[in-house]
Computed example of a mutant assay.
Amino acid sequence: MRRHRPRPRPWSNLTEEEYAALLPFVRNTGAGRPVVDLRGKLDAIFRIATTDIPWSRVSTDHGPTSTIHRLFRRWAHAGVWSRLLRESARRRAARAIRRMQSWIAAVFRRCHRLLGLAAVILARRLRIHRALPGPSWYFPDPDLSETLVAVLRDASRHPGDARWEEIAGLAVRLLRNTTRRRPIPRCLVPVG
Rank of each mutant, 00 (worst) to 15 (best):
Gly116Val: 00
Ala21His: 03
Ser156Trp: 10
His4Pro: 06
Ala31Ile: 07
Leu122Glu: 15
Pro185Ser: 14
Gly192Arg: 04
Arg163Ser: 09
Arg180Asn: 14
Ala93Gly: 09
Ala150Ile: 05
Asp61Glu: 10
Glu146Gly: 10
Trp81Asp: 00
Arg113Val: 06
Leu117Ile: 02
Pro140Gln: 01
Arg109Met: 00
Asp61Thr: 02
His62Lys: 03
Pro159Trp: 05
Ile128Thr: 13
Ser12Asn: 10
Gly160Val: 12
Arg125Met: 11
Thr67Gln: 13
Asp154His: 12
Leu14Glu: 01
Pro142Asn: 02
Gly169Trp: 11
Arg153His: 09
Leu126Asn: 07
Ile104Leu: 03
Thr179Arg: 13
Ser12Trp: 03
Ala20Leu: 04
Ser59Leu: 05
Ser136Val: 07
Ser82Asn: 06
Thr15Gly: 01
Met1Thr: 05
Leu114Lys: 03
Asn177Cys: 12
Pro8Leu: 12
Asn177Phe: 10
Leu85Ile: 04
Arg91Tyr: 15
Glu87Val: 03
Pro133Gly: 00
Arg173Val: 12
Asp141Leu: 07
Pro6His: 11
Gly32Glu: 08
Pro185Cys: 15
Thr60Gln: 00
Gly192His: 04
Phe139Pro: 01
Glu166Phe: 15
Cys111Tyr: 00
Pro135Gln: 10
Arg95Gln: 06
Ala96Asp: 01
Ala31Trp: 14
Leu122Phe: 03
Ile184Ala: 07
Arg124Glu: 08
Leu188Arg: 15
His158Arg: 06
Pro185Asn: 13
Tyr138Cys: 10
Gly192Thr: 05
Val120Phe: 00
Leu22Glu: 03
Glu165Gly: 05
Trp103Cys: 04
Arg176Glu: 10
Arg125Thr: 07
Ile184Phe: 05
Ser102Ala: 15
Leu144Tyr: 15
Gly134Ala: 04
Leu148Met: 12
Leu42Lys: 00
Pro140Arg: 01
Pro64Trp: 07
Leu114Ser: 07
Arg127Leu: 11
Pro10Asn: 11
